[in-house]
């Protein structure tokens, strides 16, 4: 290739100011979930047609295209669908303590959530393992009311 880039030209700045947006989102499912977490309960929404349980949920079923509003309880145990082990920070520098983040399908739900798993060596962690939520002592109705997950060993 004989192409040579021309001389460097100056840079000028411009903004995209996203602080000017008043974003609005469907909060039905997340409100239901976090309200329940005050009582250490996980709640999802079930589609009356296909039976799919969303947690948190949209207010309609993606597949059946109908409104959904049947509240169901979801267990705080689940199965690992996939996971990753964080070994570097956002800038790519290695970190001391590796962290396992797992995609967990909760028992009684068809959706998955990501959570941190502790108490297991990362080399021993596998897809398909069973995990259980470890709750904080005084839940406040927040997604952080579940502190972490641990592997169910029995």
């Amino acid at each position: 290739m004989t192409f040579e880039m021309g001389p460097e030209t100056r840079q000028v700045e411009a903004m995209w100011d996203v602080s000017t947006y008043n974003y609005r989102m469907d909060g039905t499912g997340i409100r239901l979930l976090t309200e329940g977490m005050k009582e250490k309960k996980l709640r999802g929404i079930r589609c009356g047609e296909c039976g799919m349980v969303y947690m948190p949920g949209p207010s309609y079923c993606r597949k059946c295209f109908v409104d959904i509003d049947e509240v169901v309880e979801v267990k705080d145990t689940g199965t690992v669908m996939s996971y990753c082990v964080t070994m570097a920070d956002v800038r790519g520098n290695p970190i001391e303590e590796f962290r396992i983040s797992a995609m967990i399908q909760f028992d009684g739900a068809d959706t998955w959530f990501v959570g941190t798993v502790t108490g297991v060596e990362w080399q021993d962690f596998k897809v398909g393992m069973r995990v259980k939520a470890v709750w904080v002592d005084e839940p406040a109705g927040s997604l952080s009311d579940i502190d972490r997950f641990e592997v169910i060993t029995d």
Partner: peptide, 15 residues
């Protein structure tokens, strides 16, 4: 709603 954006604690965001 209480999600830890750094994904260290709780439910929601991953690493």
């Amino acid at each position: 709603h209480g999600m830890d954006l750094f994904g260290i604690k709780g439910l929601g965001f991953g690493g």
